[in-house]
Amino acid sequence: MSSSSFLLRGPMPARRAVSTVATGLLLATACTAHAATFNGSGALTTDYVWRGTTQTQGDPAVQAGFRATAENGVYGSIWGSNVEFAPETQASSELDATVGWSGALSDDWALDVNLTHYRYPSATVDLNWTEAIGTLTWKQNYWAQLGYSTEALATDEAGAYAQLGAKIPLGEQVRLEAAAGYYWLDDAYDDSYAHAQLGAVWVFKAPFELRVTAHATDSSAKTLFPGLAGSRVEAALQAAF
């Protein structure tokens, strides 16, 4: 989440209610996952870039996540990273709790729908917010994603996000990944912005991968998030298990 969002904060009771619902759903998922499968991921990255903007002021990040999936496709996950926002927020960590469902619609199509709660435990201001996200995937390599929140970037205003992306295999060990997104933030910030990214992934020794990604945003993003948007390159060592 962009560090600029701490300037506009939504009503505490409303966001606490959403947070409670998200927590309840996560617990319900855990309780019903009698025959669940478990997996996780970890990454060391030179920069934490989210929707085109850095979340660590361009500094490195350590990230890890865990997910439990039931036989019926219902899942719950937790993911965390260090962050570096404006000093007055004192935000140093991010924890994302997600509950959702994913499954195949046909041989070629798959769907993932979830509710993700972004939480910043160390922040001295209320930066927490929740977003509903849906992702439609074709042949496991092409996707379209939509996100919507009534408290976008921890404000009390709505925001919507759309992304199109593709994975392009270049062999058994190398693939390209490209995505373009647009974030509608007119209600919260009187502006919206676009971003794009292009990366190369090398699976040099499974499950370890090396990823290098170039990011770019439009001028609106630079105006909305000075010093955080623009062009940047990140490199990451990541693994899934």
Rank of each mutant, 00 (worst) to 15 (best):
D47C: 07
D47H: 10
D47L: 09
D47G: 05
Y48D: 12
V49W: 12
V49S: 07
W50V: 15
W50N: 15
G52T: 14
T53Q: 15
D59M: 14
D59H: 14
P60F: 12
P60V: 08
V62F: 15
V62N: 09
V62C: 10
Q63T: 13
Q63L: 14
A64C: 05
A64E: 04
A64Y: 12
G65C: 04
G65H: 03
G65D: 00
F66R: 02
A68T: 07
N72P: 03
N72I: 05
G73A: 02
G73S: 02
V74A: 04
G76D: 06
S77D: 06
S77G: 05
S81R: 03
S81Q: 02
S81F: 05
N82G: 06
V83D: 03
P87F: 10
E88L: 13
A91G: 05
S93N: 13
S93Q: 14
E94T: 08
L95M: 07
A97R: 15
A97V: 15
S106H: 05
S106W: 07
W109V: 06
W109I: 06
A110F: 09
L111P: 02
D112S: 13
V113F: 11
L115Y: 15
H117V: 11
H117I: 10
H117N: 13
Y118L: 06
Y118P: 00
P121I: 11
P121C: 06
S122R: 15
T124C: 11
T124F: 13
V125R: 11
V125K: 11
L127E: 07
W129N: 01
W129M: 03
T130C: 07
E131S: 03
E131D: 04
T137A: 08
W138L: 09
Q140Y: 14
Q140D: 15
N141E: 14
N141V: 13
Y142F: 11
Y142P: 00
W143I: 06
W143S: 07
W143G: 04
W143V: 05
A144I: 10
Q145R: 10
Q145Y: 05
L146P: 01
L146E: 01
G147V: 00
Y148A: 03
S149F: 04
S149P: 01
S149K: 01
E151V: 01
A152V: 14
A152T: 09
A154F: 02
E157I: 08
E157K: 13
A158D: 02
G159N: 00
G159T: 00
G159A: 01
A160W: 00
Y161S: 02
